[in-house]
């Protein structure tokens, strides 16, 4: 850590030393090649900021790369701030040959080979600001209007295409709402089945509670004679004023 290993950059010198000291019998086949095509200079920091003039503060981050800025950046952030859902639309960012943008002409907002999206508005706005000398706001309004118009046309086109297809016998299957409702119904039916099962279990438990082996309460197993005998025995223990507040068996006949 913190130390550089220059062995990779000095392969030629090391090979030469080995050869001179007879450690290897022949120079490797790349020896001349690396001599003719030497490795590039490395680890040299270019100065990224302008040098300090006298009396000014020394610029910080002198050797760090500078941010890259374009005039569109502000326009872009403004547009997507106003239309955040434009970012949710799928977009192709694959380049064909790197010259894709050279065929575009922003005097119109619609470009061949490019889908209409937020970037079109930004580029169109910039073009209007630069070529028609419109203010930023005016250019924004015009570009946006064109954008909305073409989006509307796209919607109409889509709707008409669907109608045509339906008229000629196309079948598109279930819609999103239908599928959603079906899923909801399915979930409800599942819940119903589950709830029915729970009720059944509950019922069984309750029945088990009452039908299980129950201990006989006192006196339950006595026949009439025994009962009378017992009552006679207890008669004296009961106060004349009836049952006490502590409670006890209701042995009144």
């Amino acid at each position: 850590m913190g130390r550089y290993d220059f062995r990779a950059l000095r392969v030629r010198q090391s090979a030469k030393q080995l050869f001179d000291n007879r450690k290897i019998t022949a120079l490797p086949p790349w020896y001349e090649v690396v001599g003719n095509i030497p490795p590039a200079e490395t680890l040299v920091r270019p100065v990224m900021r302008t040098p300090r003039t006298k009396g000014t503060k020394k610029p910080s981050r002198m050797f760090q790369p500078m941010p890259i800025k374009y005039p569109e950046d502000k326009l872009r952030s403004e547009f997507f701030g106003d239309h955040p859902w434009e970012l949710a639309r799928p977009r192709i960012i694959l380049e064909d040959n790197g010259n894709d943008a050279k065929g575009w002409d922003w005097s119109r907002i619609v470009q061949p080979g490019k889908k209409l999206d937020g970037e079109s508005v930004v580029q169109r706005q910039l073009w209007l600001m630069q070529n028609d000398n419109l203010t930023k706001e005016a250019a924004y309004d015009q570009a946006r209007r064109e954008f909305y118009h073409h989006r509307h046309l796209e919607d109409v086109q889509r709707r008409v295409a669907k109608e045509e297809a339906l008229a000629t016998g196309a079948y598109f299957g279930k819609g999103v709402l239908e599928i959603g409702m079906e899923l909801e119904d399915q979930a409800y039916e599942n819940w119903k089945a589950w709830a029915q099962k729970q009720i059944d279990i509950e019922k069984q438990n309750r029945e088990q509670l009452y039908s299980g082996p129950v201990e006989k309460p006192d006196g339950a197993g006595l026949d009439d004679e025994e009962l009378d005998e017992a009552l006679d025995k207890m008669e004296d223990a009961i106060p004349a004023g009836g049952q006490g507040a502590i409670g006890g068996a209701a042995i009144h006949p």
């Binding site: 200079e41 490395t42 680890l43 040299v44 920091r45 270019p46 990224m48 050797f63 760090q64 790369p65 500078m66 941010p67 890259i68």
Partner: peptide, 15 residues
């Protein structure tokens, strides 16, 4: 930082 001489600039948080 050894790659400073190959870097053109910073854009959207990447070199």
């Amino acid at each position: 930082p050894a790659n400073a001489r190959y870097i053109h600039g910073i854009r959207q948080g990447i070199h």
